[in-house]
Amino acid sequence: MNSRYFPVLIEGLQVATVLLAAPLLAGWIRMLRCRAQGRRSAGILQPFRDLSKLFIKDTVLADNASWIFTSAPYVVFGATVLAGAIIPIISVDLPLSETADVIALVAIFAIARFFMALAGMDVGTAFGGMGASREMMVASLAEPAMLMSVFTVSLVSRTTSLSHMAHAVMTGPVVLRPSLAFAFVSFVLLAIAETGRIPVDNPSTHLELTMIHEAMLLEYSGRRLALMEWASMMKLFLFTSLGVALFFPWGIAGRDTVSMIPLAFLSLAIKLALTGVFIVAVEIRLAKMRVFRIPEFLGMAFLLATLGMLSFFILE
């Protein structure tokens, strides 16, 4: 077989991984959380059952729902899958990775969020508008900080292409870099905010005044809800693997090393499992913070990212 096609095959494999592993990660986190709280869990496969149930169910649409409301789930889902094709998850040898760098990736996530917020406001319920405005507040504060955090890694690796960044960190000499440490802590805080986990948002709330993400999805049902839910699971998975690719890329298959793929899957599974443990450890310890404290939380993330960038110039 011609080795020219390997990158394309790997790309396809990776997209399939994103689609299938995201519900697994969500299930793993729910399972761990149940265990930690002394409840019996529904098993790691429960998100798949939820999704397939939602796909079978009928869709109920509000009378005044416009085309934005009906098309938003497809846009959100598509943008998230596209992001999944860009981030080096199992291999840095991705054809699509050359088309979009890290700035474009942040923009793709922004498109998904923009349509989600529009859809939240479209039907005109109070909860939808509230959730959309809060989501935009989080986004406007988290995005600059996210760019700062990612730019610090860019400065260290001298490129903005994700594949090259992962490759540079992987093959470079191991040195103590305070800038990367700051950028990593900032990235963790931002990932918590972006994926709507505790303490910024609680993913398992329905009809609470404090909810952000769920408030925008309240009017969705059936397959559209399934797509939205699946997209948000993928977002969690993608932010985890983006953090892995930027800060702990060891284990991701390099260029022209197809034999590394099984090892890459193994290391991905281990890293994701550890991330799940970390998320659950944070979530069972912390309470959700007040909405007015979120700007301060994100301001701290921005501060850390800036300190990371400054300490690159000052100390390295």
Binding site: L176, P178, A181, F182, S311, L315, E316
Partner: peptide
Amino acid sequence: INGVLAALILL
């Protein structure tokens, strides 16, 4: 190491 400690002092 000194750089890391300096970063921690700044933090």
